[in-house]
């Protein structure tokens, strides 16, 4: 299937492509539903993801100015959430620029397609600096080397430089005005800061273009995984479709991160679409 002209590239689908081209093709091009278990234990993983979502919402509410004492009550509904919340409050991010844009989306044309990123928080001081903050609720802090390789670490600052002019009085951000911070609930005192630079911007531009070009070239042929990618099959829901095993792998072997960068059209369920049920 050739790549549709309105296909939108994001860190989620590009990371899938890098992890396994076959998975990218099945999930994002063919949009194939394959509801096998991704990893186990199911309930523990689900609970952690729900807490991650609640934490992201609490932070968003806080950044929008809802009173802390009211949010305290919501955070108190779960001991883990309470711990994360207290850690967040102990690290008030006062050094961040003053203008805050929580849950903000940017997109731009790149390599003939649309490139999109949804930021947990953009903190900007127009003309001076822009900080991307990403809240990570993984059970363990992701190693720096691994983070550096993630598509997110390349795409987010790159896209802010490319498409963030509206947050800088209409002027494009210079790459060296941008930095990216990963803040971990697992290690709140040990955030990971990645400063950005012109050199990194050029490198990321080249790399992103190369990935997209490779996808465009191979989209209408069966995409295959390479031998060094097979270790990921136990944590992939397409495992049985690709005849790569039965049982799902352990969740703790994966990233265990909450990603809220979904399909643009996946808005909430609309009751209007349901007619009276006929039996």
């Amino acid at each position: 299937m050739p790549l549709p002209s309105d296909f939108v590239f994001s860190q989620h689908n590009l990371q899938d492509y890098l992890d396994c081209p076959r998975r990218f093709q099945l999930r994002h091009l063919e949009r194939m539903a394959w509801p096998a278990v991704q990893s186990e234990p199911i309930l523990e993983q689900e609970r952690h993801m729900q807490l991650g979502e609640q934490f992201h919402r609490l932070v968003q509410q806080h950044q929008l100015g809802l009173p802390v004492e009211i949010l305290e009550e919501s955070a108190g509904s779960d001991p883990n959430l309470q711990t994360w919340w207290q850690a967040y409050l102990r690290h008030p991010q006062t050094e961040l620029p003053p203008l805050r844009k929580p849950e903000f989306t940017l997109a731009a044309q790149f390599a003939g397609f649309r490139l999109l990123a949804k930021y947990d928080l953009l903190a900007v001081d127009p003309g001076k600096r822009a900080v991307i903050v990403d809240w990570k609720t993984n059970r363990r802090r992701t190693p720096t080397a691994r983070l550096r390789e993630r598509v997110q670490t390349r795409l987010y600052p790159f896209l802010l430089a490319l498409a963030g002019a509206q947050l800088n009085g209409g002027e494009a951000w210079q790459p060296d005005q941008i930095e990216m911070i990963y803040w971990f609930t697992a290690e709140p005192d040990n955030p990971q800061v990645f400063p950005y630079s012109e050199k990194q911007y050029r490198s990321d531009e080249k790399l992103l273009r190369a990935w997209i070009d490779a996808i465009v070239r191979s989209a209408d042929q069966p995409m295959l995984m390479t031998a060094d990618q097979e270790h990921q099959c136990p944590l992939c829901n397409y495992r049985s479709f690709c005849e790569r095993g039965q049982r799902a792998g352990a969740w703790e072997d994966g990233d265990g991160d909450v990603t809220d960068e979904g399909d643009l059209s996946s808005i909430d369920f609309d009751f209007h679409e349901i007619e009276e049920i006929e039996f």
Partner: peptide, 28 residues
């Protein structure tokens, strides 16, 4: 469409969808 100007995105919603978002955000 790829050639849309770079920047943020418009919100496309039903009022029901918008209401649900507001409920989540301002519930407390």
């Amino acid at each position: 469409q790829p050639d849309l100007p770079a920047g943020s995105l418009p919100t496309i919603q039903t009022l029901n969808g918008l209401a649900q978002r507001m409920v989540l955000l301002f519930w407390p």
